[in-house]
Computed example of a mutant assay.
Amino acid sequence: MLRQSNEHVVVTGITPGSFYERLYTSDSLHLVCSSNSLHWLSKAPEDLFRNLIPAYDMDKDARRQRHRLVLEAYAKQFRKDFTNFLKLRAKELVSKGRMVVSLVVRRSDVTATKFSYLSRTISQILSVMVSEGVIDKEKFDSFYVPVYEPSSKEVRETIEEEGSFSIKEMQVHDPTTDMNNALSTPSKFVNLLRALCEPILVQHFGDVMYEFVSAAERHWSLEGNLLGPYAMLAISLAKA
């Protein structure tokens, strides 16, 4: 129990569960912080999964033809998930409560011309494993990396359309230099991929991490640093 005091008391908490579901009771929070999370989708893009369209086709011509369709499906899923996140947090925050959010975004506000660097890199490594007979192509075609890097414009528009929050401040930070150092060796690169993706890879493909690590190290030796043109967006929001 909290002792009686005339001083302000701060109670912090971390609750297990998906941030795309309700986590707290209504009107119970004064401040919510979401750090480096919301570029992860709740699930594979519904349009692709329902129509059995691979996110990354091994055939370059097929991949080029489907490219816009795939990107639009990812963008649609992001808007749906982010809108749901905003609605749920608005219910949990008190009147005039605040929320601080950071997530990975593209540097450009134009329609994405490439997959996120993480999705592209994972898919390229897995396609090599398919060619080597380590994993089945049908399994590969049904695998979707649940990551989307929106533009800051997409984020702003979604917040404004949902309507529960007013934007107090938005800042873009370029972490490229720090990340270049962090991914400067094959082992650092592979450790990052394992930390981010091992659970979803094992769930979908089974125990293939030894082969995945080997293929990832070879991929790094050929491609070098695989960091894409992304940035971190930080947003300060107030409940409207």
Rank of each mutant, 00 (worst) to 15 (best):
S26A: 10
S35G: 10
S42V: 01
C33H: 14
Y20W: 05
F49C: 04
S35A: 09
E46P: 01
S37P: 00
L38K: 00
H8E: 14
F49E: 07
T25I: 04
T25G: 15
G13W: 15
R22F: 14
Y20K: 07
L52R: 12
V32P: 03
P16K: 07
L48M: 04
L38F: 01
L38N: 00
D27E: 14
I53H: 06
P45K: 00
I53T: 06
H30N: 13
N51Q: 09
I14T: 13
L23S: 07
T25M: 06
K43N: 10
F19H: 10
F19K: 09
A44I: 03
V32F: 10
T25Q: 13
F19C: 11
L38W: 02
K43R: 13
L41R: 06
E46V: 03
S42C: 04
G17Q: 14
P16D: 00
A44W: 10
L48W: 02
L38R: 00
H30A: 05
S37M: 04
S26M: 06
R22P: 11
T25C: 13
V11K: 15
P16F: 07
H39I: 00
I14L: 11
R50Q: 08
K43W: 12
Y20V: 01
L48R: 02
F19Q: 04
V9W: 12
I14Y: 14
Y24S: 08
P16Q: 04
H39Q: 08
S37N: 05
H30F: 03
N51I: 02
